[in-house]
Every structure is written in C-alpha cells, then in structure tokens.
C-alpha cells in the first residue's frame, strides 16, 4: 500500500505503471484500519482479523467496493 500526495498523483502513477486505479483510502480510514489490525498486536491475545471480521471492518468504514472483498 503506497502513499501519495493527492489523487492526481495516484492517477499519474497508475498511468505510468499501466496499473488500474483502485479505491482510495484517506488518513482517517487508514488510522481506523491500523487500530483494528494492530492495537492489540503486542498483547498475548494478538491475532489478525480474518474473514467476516475483515468484511465488517471494511463495511463500517464504507469500503464496500468489490475490491475490498477478502
């Protein structure tokens, strides 16, 4: 997952690399994803979200495009 200054820079990067443009993630959404994935990572109970949990997280963030189906 890469960082860009703006959507225009994503467009240019996709064009240069002949890759399809995917749904963008803003910093607030990214922070929520980071917390959901990693806030308990240093604890004995650490585990990665899986399957339905991931879908629920994406749904809560409005990431409903088929791109996000895991």
């Amino acid at each position: 997952m890469l960082l860009f200054r703006s959507e225009e820079h994503v467009d240019k990067w996709c064009s240069v690399h002949t890759l399809p443009k995917r749904p963008l993630v803003d910093l607030e959404q990214l922070w929520t994803l980071a917390k959901e994935w990693y806030s308990s990572r240093l604890t004995p109970e650490a585990r990665r979200p899986m399957g339905a949990e991931i879908r629920a997280i994406f749904d809560r963030l409005g990431l409903t495009d088929p791109f996000w189906q895991s």
Binding site: M1, S6, W13, L19, R22, L27, Q69
Partner: peptide, 8 residues
C-alpha cells in the same frame, strides 16, 4: 491518500 494496487 493511500492506494492499494492489489485487491484485498
């Protein structure tokens, strides 16, 4: 903004 190249 952040951008994934690969679907989830």
């Amino acid at each position: 903004v952040a951008h994934f190249a690969v679907p989830a």
